[in-house]
């Protein structure tokens, strides 16, 4: 029963759609363009949009002056590390709650969710003091611990909503056929669970990569991930927009691409399954 859509209507919406998309995307586009300029070009007024001498100079300088690569590795270690540990702890928990629910399962899920709603400033002071006393301030290990904990509820919830969709009958059928528990896990459950686990992994790497409360407060020079490194450009010492743009482009490009792939899971993960 598809209605015929007039070409004219479609063209109108094409124009509006692209215009709106361009405006919303403009800050990112402008950052990428500026990263290929010299510092002089970057602050030229009126601004030069495409016709300037494209150069990679800023990218070289960001690396040579501030050891960009080190901060990127910090981001990688912290976001991947916290996500993997989180998954390791969350998979069994979500599994148990999805496949052998008890009366208290719902309460436990709700309680886990409520920990996510604890504002970080509520625990900033003790965490800071404990980290100072334990020598965890400005260490990758410290940040991995914190990010694991703050994303654990989301990981458990996302996995739970995915596991819930695996039909229990299949498990029973395989058990009837005499499959041992190990076989059941390897041949029946794992293949069905992998897509959900992969989506969870993706979304959590994105969240951990962009986390900017704990990373700013608990890191300094040595463990600073990209969020904190970029923040150091806020000092009013001068206008280094080309270098800021180059550092920013490198910091957001990988995550933007991952994000584009995970847009469907994003809705589900961030609404705790309330919108699918």
């Amino acid at each position: 029963m598809a209605r015929a859509i007039s070409t004219r209507r479609k063209l109108t919406f094409t124009a509006i759609g692209w215009l709106v998309g361009f405006v919303i995307f403009f800050p990112i586009l402008w950052t990428v363009l500026t990263s290929f300029k010299t510092e002089g070009e970057a602050i030229a007024s009126p601004p030069h949009f495409l016709f300037f001498d494209w150069t990679l100079q800023s990218y070289y300088e960001v690396q040579s002056r501030s050891n960009y690569f080190k901060h990127m590795m910090n981001s990688v270690v912290i976001s991947f590390g916290s996500t993997f540990i989180g998954l390791l702890v969350a998979i069994p928990a979500a599994w148990a709650m999805a496949f052998s629910p008890t009366k208290r399962t719902k309460d436990i899920m709700m309680w886990m969710l409520s920990t996510k709603m604890l504002p970080p400033v509520g625990v900033l002071v003790p965490i800071y003091l404990l980290f100072r006393d334990w020598g965890l301030l400005d260490t990758r290990l410290g940040l991995v611990i914190v990010l694991t904990m703050i994303n654990l509820p989301i990981i458990v919830w996302m996995l739970y909503t995915y596991f819930k969709e695996i039909p229990g009958e299949i498990l029973e059928a395989s058990r009837m056929d005499g499959a041992s528990l190990a076989k059941e896990i390897v041949y029946v459950l794992t293949p069905m669970a992998v897509p959900g686990i992969a989506s969870t992994l993706l979304l959590n790497i994105i969240l951990a990569w962009n986390e900017a409360f704990w990373t700013l407060n608990l890191s300094a020079a040595s463990a600073a991930p990209l969020t904190a490194f970029i923040a150091s450009y806020s000092s009013p010492e001068g206008l280094f927009w080309a270098k800021l743009s180059a550092a920013s482009t490198l910091a957001i490009a990988p995550i933007l691409i991952l994000g584009w792939f995970s847009q469907r899971q994003l809705v589900r993960g961030l609404t705790f399954g309330a919108v699918k």
């Binding site: 994105i206 700013l216 957001i252 933007l256 994000g259």
Partner: peptide, 10 residues
């Protein structure tokens, strides 16, 4: 949807 993936400091 791109702005959502840009880290807050950037």
């Amino acid at each position: 949807i791109a702005p959502f993936f840009v880290m807050p400091t950037v």
